[in-house]
Design a binder for these strands. Structure first.
Lengths: 337, 337
DNA sequence: AAATTCTACGGAAACGTTTGCATAAAACAT
DNA sequence: ATGTTTTATGCAAACGTTTCCGTAGAATTT
């Protein structure tokens, strides 16, 4: 019924609790003979160490927390995959929390994690987080944290990102090369590092063709329905001939908006987007995407975190890791024939 | 630096540890006055109870585990979302594990969870799990478990599923109504409950038109590359005019296969699939899908589990919850004009 | 006034580990 | 033979809670 404890093993074998404990962790001061006996019984009774007792005693839990805005997002699910791959390798466990882009929720989660619940944190900021007061206790308590993708610039912590600025620059140039004269940037949230960087790249590219290419900025929301309305309105009124979607969901909303207006992609409007959509090539038309190395970013962030956990002393771990995205050009930005 | 403990609060306030503990948990035998003092100090010092100490003492952790095959799958990410919604509401924490469709890994995860690490388990079986020996200790130790989607028929535990059989029946009839005469069923893994049920629905539908409609069975793998080859081969050799993909990834592979052979959907081959793809309507052509109520299934599974946790006695919780899927017909199964 | 019940709190044991320290027995050195 | 080191083990204290039990003093009843 109830689980086997070290105490039971000790009693059964007529050994002290400490001896059994040491035997199980393969301590050098236990004879090979005793170790064998202990291990044999442990196997036989299917002994599993109590994680909570162990975590309480040593002051670490072999658990990390991943805090992300949401999971119904290809990028984040691939990141998680990468994180889990590393965690599994290191025998760590992963607690997962969603902020739903909500600062309040983000604060609550962090508040909870301050109790030593986890050894470290991997985090991507919520879209509507403007105030970062709730992040300070993390540093005060010295809990290792690594930010990925949506970083917090005002906090001194390692980050793992992709080359948002450069990719945006490249992508915008591409739009201009295929003939766009009036390009709209669809922003997901001006508080997010990624959005800022991407917009900067966009604007810098536009600036190089100053006077020849017009730019538009459309701030979007977290509500898909509302986004589609916003985009539809913009398409109808401003009539841009290019759309740069900062995130996948805005590209999808754009496709729907075009469909509702009977606009043809790419003849009337060309669209590209940061996106990890697996079906990008199967869309009608295929969507030109800037593919973020999500899986690698997850692995990388986890690796940096584990480095911090393992050698707490040497504070010279990677500060800012940047992994390059790659652009795949498809029909959505093809020059009309 | 280090976290605040109850002991520190007690010393500061000249109270016994037990008094502080009781005050914090709002026990009736503590005066309102004392409670107020304790709460005030706790707030001021930002006290956070140590989760491990607490979990060790009471024998519950306020944590559940979710064991799924993978996350890069729209269905599972939506399920997780539903689970997290309920967990958050109940103030529970969620540990997440991926089996990568691997029985070995599945066994390891479960092995670990036997130590009282979690209060309950939500699980969807791995694709290549044939032997369920590793599941028995869960029942022996009395750890509450709920299976969702890919259930384990041989274990007496509550399940949350969708109406796989009926939906398959309906979908297959649809394929036949739009004129398919030779329909291939793409199987993901014959060991999975969902695959069996879906195949049965498929076969039963075919049987009603016995002699008039031919059926094909293509067992697929977990490797996308390989699947595409298998499907391409089948399309080339057997020339079916309809494909029923048991899971989303096989539909995607089918689209790619058709593209590589220059086959037109739906003119040459009609395709439908169980799928939660958000972009189904934007594909070329739009994919007819049987949408599983993933989010609701997650919420439902979590709710059943929490019911088990809360009233351990009354064993009359829902045994088998079935939530209906819905079919959305799109161009991929349209009658050619 | 004595006996009883409440009220509000303290002491200490427990949850299952890990680990610093102590110590018999054995091995070795003088 | 005596002293010293080594080897293998045991004892007990921690980790931070929760909770059983006990008890002064106040309040109430008889």
């Amino acid at each position: 019924m109830s689980a086997i404890t070290i105490k039971m093993l000790a009693r059964e074998l007529n050994l002290a609790i400490s001896t059994v404990s040491r035997a199980l962790m393969d301590s050098y001061e236990i004879s090979a003979e005793t170790k064998e006996k202990v291990h044999a019984l442990a196997r036989q009774l299917n002994y599993q160490p109590n994680h909570y007792a162990s975590s309480l005693r040593r002051q670490r839990s072999k658990t990390i927390a991943v805090i992300i805005p949401e999971i119904s997002n290809n990028f984040f699910s691939h990141v998680i995959n990468g994180i889990e791959a590393i965690a599994q390798e290191k025998n760590y466990h992963v607690l997962i929390y969603f902020t739903h882009e909500n600062q309040q929720k983000e604060a609550e989660v962090i508040q909870h994690l301050l109790s030593g619940r986890v050894d470290g944190i991997l985090m991507s900021m919520a879209g509507n987080t403007t105030n970062i007061q709730h992040l300070h206790p993390i540093r005060e308590q010295g809990i290792p944290i690594v930010f990925f993708d949506r970083i917090c610039a005002d906090l001194d912590a390692p980050t793992v990102t992709t080359d948002d600025f450069d990719s945006s620059l490249l992508a915008t140039h591409h739009l201009m090369e295929v003939g766009c004269k009036k390009i709209a940037y669809l922003s997901i949230s001006p508080h997010l590092s990624i959005d800022c960087k991407r917009m900067q790249g966009f604007q810098q590219a536009i600036a190089t063709k100053s006077g020849q290419v017009e730019s538009l900025l459309l701030p979007c929301s977290t509500d898909p329905q509302r986004n589609q309305e916003l985009i539809t309105n913009m398409l109808a009124i401003e009539k841009p001939d290019g759309i740069f979607a900062s995130v996948e969901k805005l590209a999808i909303a754009s496709y729907h908006a075009c469909a509702s207006l009977g606009l043809s992609i790419p003849a009337d409007v060309k669209i590209l987007s940061f996106s990890n959509l697996e079906t990008a090539s199967l869309l009608n038309p295929g969507l030109t995407t800037i593919i973020q190395p999500a899986h690698d970013m997850g692995k990388s962030a986890a690796t940096v975190l584990f480095n911090m956990l393992e050698k707490r002393k040497s504070k010279n771990w990677e500060r800012n890791t940047v992994i390059r995205s790659s652009m795949i050009i498809r029909r959505s930005t093809q020059i009309a024939i």
